[in-house]
């Protein structure tokens, strides 16, 4: 077999593999959406983050606006500090906005819900590096059940 024919077949093989990668990237993993876009960072402290993970989505009314960039523990007061990566096209959240850690469905993954707050003259808009003060922690099922049983006991 001539080198030319081999080159063609190998080229076909590589093209097929690239097509497969594209299928996996775009159709299966949905990468690219928000991946290469500009982002800005927000910080938030929670008392308990439950099962939140890095790259968990941040949603406003069910729409994904960003992802969790990192999770650290504040070394002084032992509170989890979550760094959020928000898409730059959503840059007008007021500083009165609240964050809560929610669960999709009964047993689904946990995500951060962002509830935009009110706006007036004294309220500024959140920008890169700002901290959201008003946060609600994750609901831990065991604590919930414990509370329920405790209340029944009363």
């Amino acid at each position: 077999m001539t080198t030319r024919k081999l080159e063609l077949l190998v080229g076909f093989f590589v093209t097929l593999a690239i097509a497969a990668l594209l299928l996996l990237a775009l159709k299966v993993a949905n990468a690219g959406v928000g991946g290469s876009d500009q982002t800005y960072h927000l910080q938030a402290k929670f008392s308990n983050i439950g099962g939140l993970k890095v790259r968990s989505p941040v949603k406003v009314g069910g729409v994904v606006v960003g992802r969790v960039a990192s999770i650290k523990l504040d070394p002084e007061n032992f509170q989890p500090v979550v760094m959020l990566e928000i898409n730059s096209s959503y840059n007008n959240f007021p500083e009165t906005s609240t964050l809560s850690i929610l669960t999709s469905g009964l047993l689904g993954e946990q995500y951060i819900g962002l509830q935009p707050g009110f706006v007036d003259e004294s309220v500024s808009i959140l920008k890169d590096g700002d901290t959201i003060e008003d946060t609600k922690s994750a609901i831990v099922l065991e604590e919930l059940i414990g509370q329920f049983l405790f209340n029944r006991g009363n």
Partner: peptide
């Protein structure tokens, strides 16, 4: 089939 896949498959983590 496709949308549930997209919601659960992460390009970096999985692919």
């Amino acid at each position: 089939y496709w949308s549930a896949m997209q919601a659960n498959v992460d390009f970096q983590q999985d692919v």
